[in-house]
């Protein structure tokens, strides 16, 4: 378990973290999700000992490590740009931590071989990082971090430098790896889909604060505030109520509580159909329909329809926040 209590950090006039507290449960895969500049990487680096907190404490597995250097925290850290040791082979990269700990060479070799097999780099031991693809380099970096059997694994945007396809593959792979290895893992990301798809637990950060902590479903269905709602998924705004666009149903006849709107454009995005509408007060809004719903309605630009809010009413927020007008 990682326990962060009341941590603050300033860089000159900039407040990166303002009295932040967080608990990362044992054996979980927790995501720190937020836009760039929200303080999530700074928090991760403070937990790892690569940055010092101005105030507050960090406890890892019962040990107060607030003033402990990174060497003695028992952590594994993976960087966005791999931080591969360019002048060393894959074998030497992965074995680095063990060599520093003066582990006998035969034991290092055995452990490195085992790890390279786990991360799928079995035949690559003699290569140099420059001979690997981005995805392979990051798997090597992960093996290197795991080699020293860290108490916690800290990942700073680990897939951020990879292209979309490799990113998706690698995050599914990481989830499977975590299910095998069970090391307490904290992952920083700005990609809500990544957080939702692999994390057990998500802490959403904005503007030096943690806004909400919870499971993926809980955060998506019961966001604590407009920011969390908007960051985790698309939001439509109907008369001051924030709602998920897939919770908007379209009717061809008026009914109690429905709201009149004109169809501006219908976009077919595979399974999803996006309908851009204009409310009678001139405000734009969009609805997400399945292709079957859309087919039944036979919508076309210029049609008049009636909106009904369906789905889980907990996923709605009354917004006084104009920032979300842009999202909607």
């Amino acid at each position: 378990m990682i326990t962060v209590s009341n941590v603050s950090k300033h860089f000159g006039d900039f407040t990166a973290l303002d009295d932040v507290s967080l608990e990362v449960p044992d054996g979980s895969l927790t995501a720190l999700l937020g836009p760039s500049g929200s303080g999530k990487s700074t928090l991760l680096r403070i937990i790892g000992g690569l940055e010092w907190a101005d105030a507050g404490s960090v406890v890892i597995h019962g040990d107060d490590v607030t003033n402990v250097p990174p060497q003695k925290r028992g952590i594994g850290f993976v960087f966005q740009h791999y931080a591969a040791f360019k002048h060393m082979t894959v074998r030497d990269n992965v074995g680095f931590g063990l060599k520093i700990r003066k582990t006998p060479k035969d034991k290092i070799d055995a452990r490195v071989d085992e790890l390279l097999n786990i991360v799928g780099l079995g035949g690559f031991a003699k290569r140099y990082p420059s001979q690997l693809s981005g995805g392979q380099r990051q798997r090597m970096a992960l093996a290197r971090a795991l080699a020293v059997e860290p108490k916690v694994l800290l990942l700073d945007e680990p897939f951020g430098a990879l292209d979309a396809k490799v990113r998706t593959e690698l995050r599914e792979w990481l989830r499977r790896l975590h299910d095998e290895v069970h090391v307490t893992t904290l992952l920083v990301t700005h990609d809500q889909e990544e957080a939702l798809s692999i994390a057990d637990n998500i802490a959403v950060m904005d503007n030096a604060h943690i806004e909400q902590v919870g499971g993926p479903r809980e955060l998506y269905d019961r966001p604590a505030n407009p920011f969390v709602m908007g960051f985790l998924g698309p939001v439509a705004k109907v008369d001051g109520t924030l709602v998920r666009p897939h919770d908007i149903a379209l009717r061809t006849q008026p009914d109690a509580g429905t709201r009149e709107a004109q169809v501006m454009r219908v976009s077919h995005l595979g399974f999803e159909v996006r309908v851009d509408l204009e409310l009678s007060d001139g405000k734009p809004v969009f609805a997400q329909l399945t292709r079957y719903e859309a087919a039944q309605l036979e919508l076309a630009g210029g049609d008049i329809v009636w909106l009904a809010l369906t789905g889980d009413s907990d996923a709605r927020l009354v917004s006084e926040d104009d920032r979300l007008d842009a999202v909607a």
Binding site: A83, F96, A145
Partner: peptide, 9 residues
Amino acid sequence: QEEAASTLG
């Protein structure tokens, strides 16, 4: 790279 080395001990 230096930070990575420090986290590795």
